[in-house]
Design a protein around this nucleic acid. Structure first.
Length: 568
RNA sequence: CGGGGCGUGGCUCAGCCUGGUAGAGCGCCUGGUUCGGGACCAGGAGGCCGGAGGUUCGAAUCCUCUCGCCCCGACCA
């Protein structure tokens, strides 16, 4: 294609509304324009990249025997009511009514639709297993769209769904997806981690998330470089660092002492001269409308996911100050387990500790010599959030915490949808059995954003050839030199003949403008046709590394093709 | 939903406090000179100052309401 004819609206300056790098660059490089909060138009360049990403996804999905479909985005309430998610999804779902006042929604995901298709058609174990997928726009009424294309209200997802007769079948489908996903992300040039994850509102027994390390991300993962353990922070386990100071030995009774104005763990630590790890942190939570006191070591943080899981609670929240006042007759900052009249659950790191500091449930007073199991009773669970510096439960090496972008998530759904929606087949004994399902998502747009987050520099985007909008740009330096224009045109045609995705920068612009734009847009290879043409030479430049080699003009296209092959 | 910030040509922003006929740079158009990392000269187009109400002789500027966008938090298939 000829650049002069293309719509590539690059910006010299960074638009003010963009905060994260990928967003800034997508706007500056003319890939996207924003219509409204969380709604983006994907312009020519973005669409080319997305099509390449989707082609990779299709190739790998097809390779594991998955079949592509196209499903409605507009969906009737009935199927969501059947699965129970019409209520569960709450405000996250876009809902509307048709002219007959029937309830509809815009699909956030397609478990219900796929299950509905399957239950109408799958009758026999002989038809299993099946893997069906779709690449489509999905909708979520985000409370706060943000970070450019990372959290949006309308987004392109690939979702696949597996149907199996039994658990080993599901395991196989899950593993196939795991492997296919690794290949997809590798081909997209991403550095990623597959981590254990919480299944959340999707339901199901086991799930793995695919995460790309990035400061623009919203998720944290815990990783052990040594043994490969990796988990979402919501779920991660670790061995905490030992308390900073040993507990006082001896069998003491709790003893109240005055701590005027000392409310936070840090203030009490400073006041007592004892480290935070010698304190018991008391958090008042409300789980499914019932008060619960959660206890942690002073320097630890509560994992709300683990807390909810421990109580099997659907909804949890911190208690309001007014509630705390009523229940304890003291304010947050002076609370403790001794004498608390509610369910108490404690993190395992408190098990076996003695003579710690805790709030006295009286404003401006704390207790010393508080011993779990003696001075109060609690149920022990793992409630603690992993922090950097903890050690791995498998190998004892240090755990690292990384900020990440979630680009894929695969779930063993189990029987959640097949049970509620009645998807059953006959097995070889003629008995009716419920089909077991899995679901497997990839955020297509997120791959693009994540790739840019990982691969950019001060000059712009540096995507790998596999997903860059063009593979090579041929740039004549001086258009007024007919020889350069002719040579560039010829090289461009040779690139096309070799199957390279090429663009000829035939704009009547100064060379600096063309170089800057090519760098910004992120075309992996550039053939510069300039003054060395007099000696029959042109330059082949690699965007990422800035490496440049002179080659005879007639061999330039071949040289680029070779570089593309090497990179793949 | 709570807290904060911002809405002025396509983009980045000044002007607002202290009301008096709307500015700069970049981009865009025309002509010319240029041509290896976002050129130069000359000429030109383009703005209901987010919207509505109010105060005032007079509002981009002051007041009220409203809409939108961004950030932090809550939330996050």
């Amino acid at each position: 294609m000829y650049w002069s004819k293309l719509f590539i609206p690059t910006l010299r300056e960074t638009p003010a509304e963009a905060e994260v790098v990928s967003h800034q660059l997508l706007l500056r490089a003319g890939y996207v324009r924003q219509l409204s909060a969380g709604l983006y138009s994907y312009l020519f360049l973005a669409q080319r990249s997305l099509l390449k990403i989707m082609r990779i996804i299709r190739e790998e999905m097809d390779a594991i025997g998955a079949q592509e479909m196209l499903l409605p985005a507009l969906q009737p309430a009935e199927v969501w009511q059947e699965s129970g998610r019409w209520d569960v999804m709450g405000d996250n779902m876009f809902r509307l009514k048709d002219r007959f006042q029937r309830d509809l929604c815009l699909g956030m995901t397609h478990e219900e639709i796929m299950t509905d298709i399957a239950r109408g058609e799958l009758r026999s174990y002989k038809q299993l297993p099946q893997i069906w997928y779709q690449i489509q726009t999905k909708f979520r009424d985000e409370p706060r769209p943000k970070s450019g294309l990372l959290r949006v209200r309308e987004f392109l997802m690939k979702d696949s769904y597996s149907f199996d007769l039994d658990a080993p079948g599901l395991d196989a489908a899950f593993d196939k997806h795991h492997d296919a996903y690794c290949r997809i992300f590798q081909r997209c040039g991403l550095e990623f981690s597959a981590v254990e994850a919480d299944s959340g509102a999707m339901g199901g027994s086991q799930s793995t998330e695919f995460m790309v390390a990035s400061d623009a991300g919203e998720d944290y993962i815990a990783v052990c470089e040594e043994c490969g353990y990796a988990a979402n922070l919501e779920k991660a386990v670790s061995v905490p660092q030992s308390p900073r100071a040993p507990d006082p030995a001896g069998d003491f009774a709790p003893e109240k002492f005055h701590t005027p104005g000392r409310k936070t763990i840090a203030e009490v630590a400073e006041f007592t001269g004892l480290p935070e790890s010698s304190q018991i942190k008391s958090l008042v939570m409300v789980a499914d409308e019932k008060p619960v006191l959660a206890l942690l070591r002073g320097d630890h943080h509560l994992s709300e996911t683990k807390f909810a899981a421990a109580l099997k609670a659907r909804e949890i929240r911190p208690a309001h100050p007014a509630e705390i006042r009523v229940w304890f007759d003291a304010d947050a900052g002076s609370l403790g387990p001794v004498g608390a009249r509610m369910r108490i659950i404690a993190d395992r790191a408190l098990s076996g500790r003695r003579n710690m500091i805790a709030g006295a449930n009286e404003d401006d007073y704390h207790l010393r010599h508080v011993t779990p199991g003696e001075d109060f009773e609690a149920e022990f669970f793992d409630l603690r959030q992993v922090v950097a510096g903890d050690t791995c439960v498998n190998c004892g090496k240090p755990i690292e915490v990384r900020k990440t972008i979630e680009i894929g998530h695969i779930f063993k759904l189990g029987y959640k949808y097949s049970e509620s929606m009645g998807l059953r087949v006959l097995n070889d004994a003629g008995e009716e059995v419920t089909v077991i399902m899995g679901s497997y998502g990839i955020g297509v747009g997120r791959i693009l954003s994540a790739a840019i987050e990982q691969r950019h520099d001060k000059d712009g985007i540096a995507l790998p050839a596999s997903i860059a909008p063009f593979t090579v740009v041929v740039t004549p330096v001086n258009r007024s030199e007919p020889a350069q224009a002719e040579a560039a045109e010829k090289i461009y045609r040779q690139c096309l003949a070799l199957g390279l995705d090429a663009v000829l920068d035939d704009r009547d612009e100064r060379p600096g403008v063309k170089f800057k734009d090519a760098d910004l847009v992120g075309i992996p290879f550039r053939v510069t046709v300039g003054k060395k043409l007099a000696q029959g030479q042109v330059e082949v430049v690699t965007r990422r590394t800035r490496e440049s080699r002179d080659v005879p003009a007639g061999e330039a296209a071949q040289a680029v093709a070779a570089l593309v092959r090497d990179a793949a």
